[in-house]
Amino acid sequence: MSSRARISGRSYWFVVFHQLKHEPVALFSALLLLLIFLAAIFAPWLAPSDPYATSMIHRLQPIGSPDHLLGTDELGRDMLSRLMFGGRLSLLMGVAPVFMAFVIGTSIGLFAGYVGGKINMIIMRMLDVFYAFPSVLLAVAISGALGPGMMNSLFALTLVFIPQLVRVAESVTTQVRKLDYIEAARMSGARSFSIIRVHVLGNVLGPVFVYATGLLSVSMILGSGLSFLGLGVKPPEPEWGLMLNTLRSAIFKEPLIAALPGAMIFVTSIAFNLLADGVRSAMDIKR
């Protein structure tokens, strides 16, 4: 009796989290990401030196130098400090546009899917115009039109991801809307807003969330790409993509140092992807 009572009442998200604990790869990725995020967030306190302090005589010191654990860049700035500070902007480029697009895209998708009919068709065909462009090209085009700057590239990336998330949210909402429990809720005389909030949202959020976690690495790479092209963050601000660009000249002299920002982008995006895979399989449970 008591054991039966104990197994009852496990919510969906509880089960998903429980399931995630059995995925070693996802757990390791989550831990790695946690370390990277902590290093970036607490960079002002953790960084060994000022990321902006240049020193002409200490240019391009190799990895493992006594004062500079990860060497220095082409202007003699400490690489470790710059990587930690650079993580702040790069991770922001990864998380912020996806989060914004998640909120906006889910809202539009829920509305379009729930209303259905002609309104749905108009919204979706309009978004298909954005969807037709490759995301890299679209991001470059929008931030090119708006001019360089971090806010503009965040805005551009958000716009790139909105249509994709709307499409996922809309298709799931369209499926959910036809189920009997929505009919039953309508039979209760509830308003559409209440039905969407209580009955539709909870069932749409899962699949959209999985899709959005998969976009985190794409967003970070696109953001770094924009900075690399000079459309995002402006020097001397540290950002992984921009650092990769400015260190290009040193690629023959100190290839390891030139590769460091790229390695950070690579490791972080792989961790994002592996975590997203883990979440996906954890959520793929019989409900």
Binding site: L179, Y181, S188, G202
Partner: peptide, 23 residues
Amino acid sequence: MVFQDSFASLNPRLTISETISYG
């Protein structure tokens, strides 16, 4: 109204008492 598909007519994210008390 009570529908044929007992599973599809219950919101999988709500507990039984939440479902009954919603109306």
